[in-house]
């Protein structure tokens, strides 16, 4: 197995801070993410994991009263730079949300290709091809190939979430953020998503917030442990889960707090 620590850094947070009004949710996070790895963020509820994740593609700023400071470097370039277009940032850093959210009144096919189509790609064969590739990556193709024109919302929760993953992959972002993508799903649907994450890791860098420590241990290469807006520890998941350096981390993963 190649040394994961030698892989190229694709995304870096530098002293990243975030606020909701007066509430300081994320307090100076500095960390880097390697290309084609799965990075888990764990920690107790309300500790700023989701907020931190939402800063990485600048969706945090869509909330009224939200503020950020510090830098996030995507391939060396600060996405918070004034000259950077937020639309470009989000095209390159995709996101899957906690609740499956396929677009209403849109077919499965439309849901997958909407990102491309609204970027101006209208060639039907290209769209169909992308849809198939992305649905396959999301391990949904076999289940929906005969009903691509049914409504996206007609699928089950687990299928909807995989549809959302396919939708995010369709614009081909090198980095994919996942905010507790399986917390609303049953164990079987969760297993399917974990399986497909191992596949998409071959091409994409994944940063995933999860409440499920077993999940983090199973799927991730690196794990960060957050408490109250601070990052207590970051390292190879193998180390974090077997031999944590910090007492707090050890207490949390052994179930003594959180």
């Amino acid at each position: 197995m190649p040394n994961l620590n030698d892989a190229k850094v694709i995304l870096e947070a530098k002293k990243l801070e975030a606020w909701f009004g007066d509430f300081h949710a994320v307090k100076g996070i500095t960390v880097d993410y390697r290309e084609k790895t799965i990075n888990a963020i764990i920690g107790p509820s309300g500790c700023g994991k989701s907020t931190y994740l939402r800063c990485l593609n600048r969706i945090h700023e869509e909330i009224e009263g939200a503020r950020t400071a510090g830098e996030v470097l995507l391939e060396g370039k600060n996405i918070y730079d004034k000259k950077v277009d937020v639309v470009d940032v989000r095209r390159r850093i995709g996101m899957v949300f906690q609740k499956p959210n396929p677009f209403p009144s849109m077919s499965i096919l439309d849901n997958v290709v909407i990102g491309l189509r609204l970027q101006g790609i209208s060639k039907r064969s290209t769209l169909l091809e992308t849809a198939e590739v992305c649905l396959r990556k999301a391990a949904l193709w076999d289940e929906v190939k005969d009903k691509l024109n049914s409504l996206g919302t007609s699928l089950s929760g687990g299928q909807q979430q995989r549809l959302c993953i396919a939708r995010a992959l369709a614009v081909n972002p090198p980095v994919l953020l996942m905010d507790e993508p399986t917390s609303a799903l049953d164990p079987i649907a969760t297993a399917k998503i974990e399986e497909l994450m191992n596949e998409i890791k071959k091409e994409y860098t994944v940063i995933i917030v999860t409440h499920n420590m077993q999940q983090a241990a199973r799927i991730s290469d690196f794990t960060s442990f957050f408490v109250y807006g601070n990052m207590i520890e970051h390292g190879l998941s193998a180390d974090i889960f077997t031999n944590p350096k910090e007492k707090q981390t050890e207490d949390y993963i052994s179930g003594r707090f959180g």
Binding site: I59, V87, R90, M95, F97, L118, R167, V171
Partner: peptide, 16 residues
């Protein structure tokens, strides 16, 4: 009535 997470999903796709 359209939930906010639908808007966020759209924005997160890199759409204006």
């Amino acid at each position: 009535l359209v939930p906010n997470h639908i808007r966020e999903a759209g924005l997160a796709l890199g759409l204006p």
